[in-house]
Design a protein around this nucleic acid. Structure first.
Length: 594
RNA sequence: GGUUCCGUAGCUCAGCUGGAUAGAGCAACAGCCUUCUAAGCUGUGGGUCGCAGGUUCGAAUCCUGCCGGAAUCACCA
């Protein structure tokens, strides 16, 4: 079907051509009419004045008259300054509504119809600490974008590259060996990822103590930080890991397993899943061959000490290390390797990395290096760079324990949902299992909306003192609108007249709602091209708010005129459907009652 | 110092591919539940869109410069 904006565009174009002859399409500027004026669409006439050679008002009137004369879908128009406000007929909007209501997944493209295969990497946790609010933002963004891109018709592969090796893991392992007394998730009753995280904090505590001690004995701070015995021990452990020392390998596997079990619980709770999970312990050697090849081609350079570099100063970046003097690889080397592997072996067209903005420099360099090495697809790498979640006290730091834990936050929110629900008594009569499910849905919806409604690239603030709100511009607000509609629909068994034939004339508010529903595909498209779930979140809010106002102002079930009643029922049913679809893109479920 | 991003109401955020009188929510205050779910609705107060120039019929939006904040510029990942 053609959208109203497409129709109004071609309609206007036809009229303008007949008035002024052929013209540049860019001159036709159409926007939805602002709330305070009458009309559905507005044509800005200023750009057309050169053609009409008349005043803005006269030009607008001329075009308006032409529209009325030639087009039956145009009901009326009005002119304010240089703006031509056009009102389309109620019947036109009814037809649009009918078509939408008959398309359950309205706005969604056919699966994989674009022919484009996009890989998206997100989450990518370290296995030495539990997930906190910052990770939640990463996960929700990645998952949201995946759904949005899939809905836009792309083939999407979601991957998670687990950072399961390195010095930071050894720190947890070492602290556990030293201070753990054999503690396990089973013996302690602590969730695996938290248990391991505790030892990461424990390590840092000990490390700081030792540094302080060394400084007291006259060492410089810099040297002390470098030479603390426990850090040396951790380094030694990493060396033994790299040499596959059986004892270390076993410890590593055990503690990682604890973490994975913990992660799985949290992922499941958040409703997040992946198509493929990579482990860095299996990919960290990738990229060396690519570097060697670049070296032989003279694109890279070798220093006297044997380390390999690329000089990016011509592009305003620095010199970047690709292989250490001992020949081992660094972070960048591995990323080069995995990128080449994914583009060539999986034949993907685009690769999105959901990674915090602290790594902007890294990804800028990554793209540039790949380009220098001759990979033309380097331009199809997109770094979805998102801002930090900050606390009033500043950044979250796992090491220092100043984080908002993902599980704790969810628990707290479920508690809020429970309390609010008990107070309202709306769920009375349901069994406790169903009720629990609803609390979970509301808590999750609140959290997801809270995170996703903010433009990804902006830093956002979370104040743990003020718990996440369930009123106003929130997830539950949107869920509530849906539940209200379902509540009405539950009470009506059949539509006792065919809405298709109805002579009911929609009022302004109703047409605004239809127009909003109708613009959903545009929003989806915007969200996909801009990689921004926030666009969908804000759209949802607008739709829910508009509905709530409508709900308050007009009767539906009690409307005696059946044509009116059925038209309204069709409208709200379609609103519910749209809310559900849009919320799904964000991973937010909408309950039928709450 | 270089690079990137951000700066809109007391707070949290929309709006930014140039269009009409800059919007929401929270907080404050005043109303609305014998009427389809009050997690809602209505109203009041609250703004130098960081500052200064420029581009033009028109700038919160684009350009330049400054100011303020964040991140980054590791033989860490």
């Amino acid at each position: 079907m053609y959208s109203a904006s497409e129709i109004i565009f071609s309609t206007l174009k036809e009229c303008l051509v007949s008035l002024y002859g052929n013209l540049d399409e860019k001159l036709i500027q159409i926007q939805p009419t602002r709330k305070e004026f009458e009309g559905n669409f507005t044509l800005v006439v200023f750009p057309l004045l050169k053609l009409s050679k008349q005043s803005p008002e006269e030009t607008a009137r001329q075009i308006g008259e032409k529209l009325i004369e030639q087009k039956s879908i145009v009901e009326k128009y009005n002119v304010i300054k240089g703006f031509l406000n056009i009102t389309l007929t109620s019947d036109f909007w009814r037809q649009q509504l009918l078509k939408i209501s008959e398309t359950p997944r309205f706005g969604f493209a056919q699966p994989e119809s674009s022919g484009k295969h996009i890989m998206i990497e997100f989450s990518s946790p370290n296995t030495n600490k539990p997930l906190h609010l910052g990770h939640i933002r990463n996960n929700l963004l990645g998952f949201g974008i995946s759904r949005i891109l899939a809905a836009a018709g792309h083939k999407v592969t979601k991957v998670n590259l687990v950072n399961d090796r390195g010095i930071h893991i050894c720190k947890s392992m070492l602290a556990w060996e030293k201070f753990g007394n054999g503690e396990t998730p089973e013996t302690s009753g602590i969730k695996g990822d938290k248990l391991v995280g505790n030892y990461y904090v424990r390590f840092d505590l000990e490390y700081k103590k030792q540094v302080k001690e060394l400084i007291k004995y006259g060492m410089s701070e810099e040297e002390a930080k470098e030479k603390a015995p426990i850090l040396e021990e951790a380094r030694e452990m990493l060396r033994r890991w790299e040499n596959k020392d059986p004892h270390i390998m076993q410890l590593w596997e055990t503690m990682n397993r604890w973490v994975y079990e913990g992660f799985d619980t949290t992922y499941q709770r958040l409703g997040i899943e992946f198509d493929k999970i990579y482990y860095e312990s299996q990919t960290y050697l990738l990229g060396r061959e690519i570097v060697m090849e670049g070296l032989s081609k003279g694109i890279l350079e070798k220093d006297p000490d044997g380390s390999v570099w690329i000089d990016l100063t011509a592009d305003n970046l620095d010199r970047k290390l690709l292989l250490r003097k001992d020949g081992t690889s660094v972070y960048m080397t591995q990323d080069l390797g995995t990128a080449v592997q994914r583009f060539t072996e999986f034949n993907i067209d685009e690769h999105i990395y959901v990674v915090g903005n602290e790594q902007n420099y890294h990804f800028q360099a990554l793209k540039l290096i790949l380009k220098r090495l001759g990979y033309s697809w380097a331009d199809n790498i997109y770094h979805l760079s998102y801002g930090m979640v900050e606390l009033p006290s500043g950044k979250m730091k796992s090491r220092e324990g100043t984080v908002v834990d993902a599980d704790d936050l969810l628990d707290q929110m479920e508690e809020t949902a429970y309390t609010m629900s008990q107070e309202s008594g709306k769920l009375e009569g349901l069994d406790s299992k169903t009720m629990d499910e609803i609390y979970r849905t509301i808590a999750l919806g609140a959290l997801k909306y809270f995170i996703l409604r903010v433009d990804p690239k902006k830093n956002m603030l979370f104040n743990p003192e003020e718990s996440i709100d369930f009123n106003g511009n929130t997830g539950p607000f949107i869920q509530y609108a849906h539940a209200r509609i379902q509540s009405i629909l539950r009470k009506v068994q059949t539509l006792d007249a065919e809405p298709r034939l109805s002579g009911y004339v929609f009022n302004e508010k109703e047409i605004r709602l239809i127009q909003l529903i109708e613009s959903f595909p545009l929003m989806l498209n915007d969200a996909a091209t801009q990689h921004s779930p926030a666009i969908i979140a804000n759209y949802l809010y607008e739709l829910a708010k508009e509905f709530n106002q409508y709900y308050h102002e007009y009767q539906i079930l009690k409307e005696s005129d059946t044509e009116c009643r059925n038209s309204r029922l069709l409208l709200i049913k379609t609103i519910a459907q749209t809310i559900k679809n849009a919320a799904w893109l964000l991973g937010i479920e909408v309950p039928d009652r709450m």
